[in-house]
Each structure stands twice: as C-alpha cells, then as structure tokens.
Design a protein around this nucleic acid. Structure first.
Length: 270
DNA sequence: CGAGGGACCTGGTTGC
DNA sequence: TGCAACCAGGTCCCTC
C-alpha cells in the first residue's frame, strides 16, 4: 500500500496522539508478519514515546531504551483509537498507552514488519544500506546521473531501488517519469545529465504534493483518522492504462518492469 | 558484480 | 452463481 507519502501522512497522524505517552501494554494477536515480531518489543512497555520519525518507508517509534521499527508492507494500516473500539479482521497488534488510547496495526497481507532496535545508538539492519531520503540535499540530478553511469537497468527500476533513493514506489515512479517525459524502460545509464536534472526535482515535488494531499487512497490506504488521501485525483498515468494521455490524448500503454505494472505514454515519454 | 525472477500473504476483481 | 486466474501500494533472497 504505502509509499513514502502515505507513511509520512501516517506519521503525522499518529505522532500528536502518542508522543509523550507511556506504553502500558503491547498485545500481539498475530506476530507472524514479514518477520516474526521479536519478544524484545516488550522492552517498549513502561517507556515514554519520545518521537515518531520516518526513515524510508519505516516508522520509528523512539524511546529512551530503544526504537520500535514499523513497516506497513503493501496493506498495513495504523490508527489511533479508543481501547474499546471493536477489533476487525487482521488487527494484529495493539500498543496501549496510559490513557484510553491504543495504536492499532492492521495488515491483511502481513508483508509489514514490527522490529525492535535496542539502545539509542547504531542502526537496525533493515535501515543499514538505505540510500538518501529524496528530501535530502544530496538527492540531485547530478547524484542520480553519477550513480546511473554504466547501468543497463531501466530508469524506473533504478529510481525504485532503495539503495539509490528511498521512498519511491510504483505509483510515484510511474507519475514522476511521465512528468519528466522519460520512457520508463530506458536504460538508466543511457539518460543524459540534463534529463536527470529535471527528474530529481520532479520526484521531490511529486512526493511533497502527495503528502500535502494526504497521500494516495486506492483501495485501503487511510490516514490515521480514517480519512482517505486525495492524491489519487492527481494521478496522471498510474491505473490509467488505455485511457487518454492528459497531454496528447493517445491511449496510455502498460508494460511490466520488475513484475510491476508500468503505465506510460508512447508519444510523450521517450 | 548486475539483472531477473520467485517468494512471502490475503482479498478484490475479472473472465469463463 | 461458481470458481479459477490474476492483480495489488514492498522488499528480501536466490539464481544466472
């Protein structure tokens, strides 16, 4: 489900409710996520939430003794609700606080994760080897250009590679390449410096706009308060196979790249 | 090393 | 209506 904007929208939604709160109890109904939830997660009980941060598509719930690391996978959702709120299917984890509230994790496909990193130094292995955030100063056209030299990989798979830049998932990769006029299948190493100079700001801008709109709601993404995101209205290619290009009105094409559906305009992207 | 594909899961939609 | 096939926002891991 969530790409960077949806994770950031989730972060902004839950932080005001749980920051400064003390964890009373963690209830795990189904710990079989992408990796089993480690027993050490219980170290969070009795701790106060200091900050809720985001790194790539991971949410980091930080305390004085360690960090709970949450990933929403494809279908994960978080909400902050009263303890009395009835459970629904796939409500796998509750983190209860010292008021009436609980941070509830729901994930039908269980591709998400809840991990624990002990202490306040060092990095969990899932966070090591991640590339820069798209909003970091280092993320520029020049950066992409330099890393892409010699790569035969398609530009779409290149920008979706977490080691290159984090947070760009399938929707926003499709959208950014359309806006930049770059054919998604073009080899990353065969794209001019100038085109990367255009692409980097377009990626940043697309992600920022999506955050401002509350993310993209397709099937099951919702903000922490249950409201949908409104960026779906802005999508120009994703999910629009066969529909007219917003620029030239030719029907949009679809191919698979890295087994992910890739929608683009034959005329406007080359 | 890079590139490509399968794997992990459930549920909604499509097509016969 | 029933049922199988296919598709989905992510990412790790294995093979060639």
């Amino acid at each position: 489900m969530p790409e960077l904007p949806e994770v950031e929208v989730t972060r902004m939604g839950i932080e005001p409710h749980i920051k400064g709160r003390t964890v009373n109890k963690i209830i795990i109904r189904n710990g079989r996520l992408r990796w089993p939830i480690p027993d050490e997660i219980q170290q969070l009980v009795g701790q106060t939430v200091r900050t809720v941060e985001r790194r790539a598509k991971y949410l980091l719930i930080k305390s004085d003794v360690g960090t709970a690391i949450l990933h929403l996978g494809m279908s994960g959702k978080l909400c902050v609700v009263s303890k009395q709120t009835p459970l629904i299917k796939h409500d796998h984890v509750d983190i209860e606080f010292n008021n009436d509230m609980v941070l509830r994790y729901n994930d039908p496909r269980r591709f998400g994760a809840l991990l624990w990193h002990e202490g306040i130094t060092g990095q969990h292995s899932v966070l090591r080897n991640l590339g820069p955030e798209p909003f970091d100063d280092i993320f520029t056209g020049d950066y992409l250009y330099q890393l892409s030299r010699g790569k035969q990989l398609s530009i779409k798979q290149f920008v979706m590679d977490n080691k290159i830049v984090v947070g760009v998932g399938n929707i926003y990769a499709n959208e950014a390449l359309f806006k930049a006029g770059i054919h998604p299948k073009r080899a990353a190493g065969n794209i001019a410096r100038k085109r990367y100079d255009a692409l980097a700001p377009i990626i940043i801008d697309t992600l920022k706009k999506a955050i401002a709109q509350g993310g993209t709601t397709l099937k099951d993404f919702a903000q922490a308060d249950g409201k949908p995101g409104y960026f779906a209205q802005e999508l120009q290619v994703y999910g629009r196979k066969g529909l007219p290009c917003v620029l030239c009105e030719a029907p949009l094409s679809e191919i698979k790249l890295g087994q992910r559906s890739t929608v683009f305009c034959q005329n406007c992207q080359n």
